[in-house]
Design a protein around this nucleic acid. Structure first.
Lengths: 205, 205
DNA sequence: CGAAATAACAAACAACCTGTTGTTTATTAC
DNA sequence: GTAATAAACAACAGGTTGTTTGTTATTTCG
């Protein structure tokens, strides 16, 4: 770094480390990874790792931060009024197109996402992702949410139900090889959300 | 142990270790716990720990196994035909009473459950719990599930949606202090399942 | 191009955690 | 009471961490 210009060596090193991280999470799980594992796999000196990251947790945090920022950008820039659209009509095109965009983004980052959402991944990231989905759908003020009068149940349970459900579907999609297209996944998710899981299973009416 | 009689010291030691485990998961997260942490907190020698468990993963596994066995027992003994009941009428009393029983059991083991489901908990246990919820509702044969003709979406996404959603609601309940009774939680969960998350939020019709 | 800046390197370190060893102590059965 | 059995223990070797050293290689900019 000099005059704000990035050093090519830094970029190469960081890319190498992050690639090693994804591989190792899938192989042995995040908790079992040692810094030595990462640097051996990335073919860099162990001291170099500590020049860029405090520890493996710091590395993980910075990778996750990038994902969350991207997802926020997609949501807020392209679809500023998802909640409004949902309130007038949940079947409108806006929420559907947002869902397609999210799945398209996940498709491009599937390696990392699959690793951190998998059984050897990072639980705190799941929690953040659930909360993101919750807030994207119902807004980011849980107190206001809980006081909505036309809710049949407390808002917090609606939020946790929905956030977890969406995250669960995303994980299932990544884990089973992304056979469905983002458009198809958006249709599936919208169908369950609108009809409810029991009706979508043919168990109702 | 001799002639099947339990040694009082063993019981004391194990209880002490498990109590320390719950405390430490909430404090620093499972992955950051060392065996030394556990034994210091439990006031036992580190070698003693290895006499009972292979490592911290073995300890965790045995604690989780107990929970899963209990939940299976509750489901299978008292409600052998939840799926049949759901197919005839999801609003029947059987699924509701099963839900109450599950929440009552979770209420009695809330310390451990809250710890392992929390952001510093164990992801593989969440996966097992989701699968358990999935199978309890829709049966334990994913292939048969995917081939059901009256499904509006592929069965695997219905399963992951529902399993994750229920687990998410349970976690929210544990995390926000279990203010609602098991009966009230069963009502909330049943309401969202039957009506769907959007209708339950007043966003539909 | 050449000089200055900076990243990456190997090596070494004290501190810590791990899992195993052989030994001592406590409990149980006869 | 005593022998058998199992739990609890202290000490050890091996590995990881995070940091530091002086040195080399690469990149940036004038």
């Amino acid at each position: 770094m000099r005059n704000g210009n990035p050093d090519l060596r830094v970029i190469r090193t960081k890319e190498s480390i992050r690639h090693a991280l994804v591989e190792l999470i899938e192989e042995k799980g995040f908790e079992a990874i040692t810094v030595k594992d990462l640097t051996t796999r990335a073919k860099i000196n162990r001291g170099t790792f500590y020049a860029h990251y405090q520890d493996k947790f710091d590395l993980m945090m910075k990778c996750e931060e990038e994902i969350m920022l991207d997802m926020s950008r997609i949501t807020k820039q392209n679809f500023p009024s998802v909640i409004a659209a949902l309130k007038t009509d949940p079947l409108t095109e806006t929420p559907f197109h947002l869902t397609v965009s999210i799945f398209e983004y996940l498709n491009g980052n599937s390696d990392f996402m699959k690793a951190v959402l998998g059984p050897k991944g990072d639980l705190s990231f799941q929690t953040r992702l659930k909360k993101f989905m919750w807030e994207t759908l119902y807004g980011n003020n849980p107190n206001a949410l809980a006081k909505e009068e036309n809710f049949l149940v407390p808002g917090q349970y609606l939020g946790s139900f929905t956030g977890s459900a969406i995250t669960g579907v995303i994980h299932q999609w990544l884990d089973s090889g992304r056979k469905e297209s983002p458009q198809e996944m958006a249709r599936i998710l919208t169908t369950i959300m609108v009809n409810g899981p029991l009706f979508a299973a043919g168990l109702k009416k």
